[in-house]
Write a protein that binds this DNA or RNA. Structure first.
Length: 311
DNA sequence: GGCCAGGGCATCT
DNA sequence: AGATGCCATGGC
């Protein structure tokens, strides 16, 4: 449903499911002050996306029962508006019914508390495959703070941006751009040689067409997508599961070796050390079907406003 | 200064 | 298949 805002710009109302909290999603999105790919201001979320060749700035607000999408710079065509709506739905996983997850969580010792505390939180996605894979590779085996530093440099060096109302809004670099780089270019940004090789290699695979989101989506099972991803250099089980969760919206994706998951379980269970893989397998048996959501909620339990600065 | 961080790979059994 | 060693780089 469209109407016109005070300034004459188009406002799109987007109905949201019952189990959705824009506020909770915003808290997640505000977890790093180094983030360039979206911004929040006065309860509104701003994000630049590319639709065809057009750069479109989205301003997203919430009434509680619906989301309102505006286009501060320029209202795009009807087709582009539809694409933007699709993007927002995918970003916040709005087509998913979380009732079964909350049902599962309510009966689970570890999940009960976090599910209640962060009710309405959804797995905030990364719809772009190149971004999802590259961001995961950047985050391999380093602390998140430094991962964000790498991303910040990468985006500022190779991404497009537009300036509006005193702020800059950035796009994640495109694989076409990165495919032309050599390892030395990324080494300058403090990427390790290995990560530089992985990321440029992924960009090559995407430019050649051998790797694409469409190709993977069309595979007949999650397991095949997983194998398709891990067949690429630089993508192991953890990265594949992360990408399945954030890009392919697989609600059961389970990066079981994830250090953040281990820390969160340690915290929730009050253990004096991180749980072993076998213990994690055992304790997560009842989550099957929703292990991706369980993981995301547990990750959420690791940070809050007070410790944002020392992520 | 040492341990750790949202792992992956090569190379063994 | 599963275990082990190695790789890099900054945070704290």
């Amino acid at each position: 449903m469209n109407r016109y805002g005070k300034d004459g710009g188009t406002v799109i109302e987007l109905a949201v499911p019952l189990e959705f909290s824009f506020t909770e999603c915003l808290i997640f999105l505000e977890r790093s002050d180094q983030e360039l790919l979206h911004q929040t201001r006065q309860g509104y979320l701003y994000k630049l996306i590319k639709i065809g060749q057009e750069l479109v700035l989205l301003k997203i607000g919430s009434t509680g029962t619906s989301l309102q999408i505006e286009f501060p710079i320029k209202t795009p065509s009807k087709d582009a508006q539809a694409t933007a709506i699709k993007y927002v739905k995918e970003w916040f996983d709005l087509d998913k019914n979380l009732r079964a997850f909350y049902e599962t969580a309510s009966k689970d010792k570890m999940l009960k508390k976090v599910a209640e505390e962060y009710a309405g939180l959804r797995v905030v996605g990364i719809p772009d495959l190149f971004e999802a894979i590259t961001w995961a590779i950047m985050g391999q085996q380093i602390n998140l703070k430094f991962a964000y530093t790498l991303k910040q440099r990468f985006v500022q060096e190779y991404g497009e941006h537009v300036d509006y109302d005193g702020q800059s809004f950035w796009l994640f670099p495109e694989y076409e751009t990165i495919a032309d780089l050599s390892v030395e270019h990324l080494r300058k940004l403090q990427f390790t040689t290995r990560k530089a090789e992985y990321i440029i290699g992924i960009a090559h695979s995407m430019r050649s067409g051998s790797l694409s989101k469409n190709k993977l989506i069309q595979m007949e099972s999650i397991e095949k997508i997983h194998r398709g991803l891990t067949s690429l250099r630089g993508i192991g089980d953890w990265t594949a599961d992360y990408v399945l969760m954030k890009c392919f919206r697989h609600q059961d994706a389970f990066p079981i070796a994830d250090v953040g998951l281990h820390l969160a379980m340690q915290k929730q269970l009050g253990l004096d050390r991180k749980p072993a893989i076998e213990e994690i397998k055992d304790r997560s048996k009842d989550w099957i079907g929703w292990r991706g959501y369980a993981t995301f909620y547990l990750w959420r339990s690791l940070y809050d406003e007070s410790n944002k600065s020392r992520l």
